[in-house]
């Protein structure tokens, strides 16, 4: 879950002749082939399998129907809002985290890291308590005199966005943090010695150097948020249908496998687009310097 979260770790250059040691890779590869790749291929196959052979009916239903197009757009919008919110909050926070000293950094890091390890069900449940009519936020605002009677917050779109940002924010902060931490703090100073203004230093030195972390964080948060299931269904229910919710419904309630498989293929395409796009960007950022 770092700057390289979506890229494989670098390997040493392969030697020419294969070693018998290489055979140790086989059990793992065979396992993933049977339990992961074959099922995935089967799923894609069933999205184009009709009553009599090949058909694109599933895709036609997903992409041609006003309702399902709306669901796809709603998921993309949810991903976009979550990602921008997380970036806006997470980018400056990652800088402060990277610049903290010694024991403070360990403590602050632990506080950002801890929520990652707490169950998403627990967090969504806690978020519900925060937003209830008799919950902590209404209680706080009432006592501060900001409002006169409790406001309905749960099951609103604003609450959904806040909940999503809450769940996915660490995935934005940590990659940016690990890039910024490695950055040489003397570089902006050097620019300052050369007479660069603070704004110039930020836009021409600091920001470009932190971009690999931003790309990693943005692609990670976007692909997670677009596919989110638990948080939207707990905070909004059927009022905000995402692609994942349609898929779950198609397979578990409607038993409409073709519809579910076609929706899964669309989501898969979005995810693949993000992953490939991010790694291309990452390569350009790395190679341009």
């Amino acid at each position: 879950m770092s700057a390289t979260a979506i890229e494989a770790p670098a390997l040493p250059a392969p030697r020419r002749r294969m070693d018998p040691l290489g055979l140790l890779a086989l059990p793992g590869i065979a396992f993933l082939f049977v339990v992961f790749l074959l099922p995935l291929a089967l799923l894609l196959w069933s999205s184009i399998r009709g009553g009599e052979g090949f058909t694109l009916a599933g895709y036609w239903r997903v992409l041609g129907d006003e309702y399902y197009r709306g669901v796809i757009l709603a998921s993309l919008q949810l991903g976009l809002v979550t990602t921008s919110g997380a970036l806006l909050l997470g980018y400056p926070a990652a800088f402060a985290l990277a610049r903290a000293r010694g024991g403070w950094q360990v403590l602050l890091f632990a506080l950002v890291f801890l929520p990652l390890t707490v169950s998403i069900i627990v967090k969504s449940f806690g978020w519900g308590i925060v937003l209830r009519r008799d919950g902590i936020l209404n209680w706080l605002m009432l006592n501060l005199g900001l409002i006169e009677r409790p406001v309905r917050m749960i099951f609103t779109e604003g609450a959904l966005y806040a909940g999503m940002i809450n769940v996915f924010l660490p995935f934005m902060v940590l990659p940016i943090y690990s890039v910024v931490r490695m950055m040489d703090p003397r570089l902006p100073d050097a620019a300052a010695t050369l007479g660069a203004s603070p704004w110039f230093r930020f836009t021409r030195v600091t920001l470009p150097l932190s971009l690999p972390g931003v790309v990693a964080g943005v692609s990670l948060v976007f692909s997670l948020a677009v596919a989110a299931y638990v948080t939207p269904s707990l905070l909004m229910g059927d009022r905000y249908m995402t692609m994942s919710m349609v898929m779950a419904k198609a397979f578990l309630n409607l038993r409409d496998w073709q519809l579910g498989a076609a929706m899964a293929a669309v989501l898969l395409a979005v995810a693949a687009f993000v992953v490939v796009g991010a790694s291309l960007l990452q390569r350009r950022l790395g190679g341009g310097r």
């Binding site: 099922p39 995935l40 799923l43 596919a227 899964a264 989501l267």
Partner: peptide
């Protein structure tokens, strides 16, 4: 990198 639900559905079917 795969959406969790896609993985789950693929397993279910397989």
């Amino acid at each position: 990198m795969l959406p969790g639900l896609v993985l789950g559905i693929a397993f279910l079917q397989a």
